[in-house]
Simulated assay, not measured.
Amino acid sequence: MSTSREGDRDRDEEGRARNARPRDGLGRPLPHGAAGVDRQPEGVVRTAAQSVAEAQALLDAGQPFHAHEVFEDAWKSGPDSERGLWRALAQTAVGLTHAARGNATGGARLLRRGADGLVEWQGEGQGVAPAGLDTAGLVRWAQELADEVERSAEAVDAAAVAPRLT
């Protein structure tokens, strides 16, 4: 990403506004010049298996915001028939991000929304999810974490509570 500062806004090569500030592992912007976590490149086309493997590595590292970006790429570049699946996975990753940032309300809401989207991928409706995704396990994980986040209202350790995708 190129960062021309037109009108004091970071822009990419196409002129779209992009925030070039470094980010922490939970995607929060840091001051310019601070050491941050490498950003996920946008628009990368991966196979389903590559998306799952990369997202799992990011989740295990406590970087659910960055895992959400991998899921978002799959949602935007994958087959139309799988868009709902990848969108639901992105929502669970954003839910975990909010829960790790201490936003219990937003975290629980997005975890549940993602779980609802994954329900139809449990072998019924749309069919079996690609790349060995354990959608039934992910639905349970998201619902249980949403309940826990609401009960405790405390930030969670994203790496410690990260789901197993397969």
Rank of each mutant, 00 (worst) to 15 (best):
V139P: 08
W86E: 07
E14W: 15
V119E: 14
Q50W: 06
E14M: 15
K76E: 14
G43E: 03
A115L: 06
A129R: 02
G25F: 04
W86C: 05
G25V: 01
L111V: 03
G36Y: 09
L85D: 03
T3V: 13
A158D: 02
A93L: 03
Q122L: 04
S2I: 13
E13Q: 15
P79E: 12
A99D: 05
D116E: 13
D10H: 15
R11F: 08
R21S: 10
L138K: 00
W141V: 05
N19L: 13
G25L: 04
T47Q: 09
R140E: 12
V52K: 04
G25Q: 04
G117T: 04
E144C: 01
R18Q: 13
Q50M: 07
A35Y: 09
W86H: 10
V161Y: 05
E154N: 14
W121E: 01
L111R: 02
A104L: 06
G27L: 02
Q56T: 10
N103F: 00
T97W: 00
W121T: 06
A17T: 15
A93K: 00
R109Y: 08
R11I: 13
P64G: 07
A131P: 01
A99R: 06
D116W: 02
V45F: 09
S2F: 08
L96P: 00
Q56H: 07
R112S: 09
A131D: 04
W121M: 05
A61T: 07
N103C: 02
L138S: 01
D10C: 11
V44M: 08
D116N: 11
L138G: 02
S77G: 09
A153N: 14
A20Y: 08
Q40V: 14
P22A: 07
G95H: 01
V128I: 11
G25A: 12
E14S: 14
E13D: 15
T135N: 02
M1D: 15
R18E: 13
G106V: 00
A108F: 06
A99C: 11
D80C: 04
A155T: 08
E42N: 09
Q50G: 13
V45S: 14
V128N: 14
R16Q: 12
G43P: 01
A159E: 07
A129D: 06
L138A: 03
E69D: 11
R39D: 15
R46I: 09
E154H: 11
G117S: 06
Q91A: 08
L133V: 07
G123S: 10
A160N: 07
Q63E: 13
A74M: 04
G123A: 06
E154F: 10
P130K: 05
G27W: 01
S2R: 13
H98I: 00
R18H: 11
R16T: 12
V44Y: 02
E82L: 11
A48H: 12
L110E: 06
T166Y: 07
G132K: 01
V37M: 11
G84Q: 06
T135P: 00
R46W: 10
R101W: 04
A88R: 00
D134S: 08
A90P: 05
A100V: 03
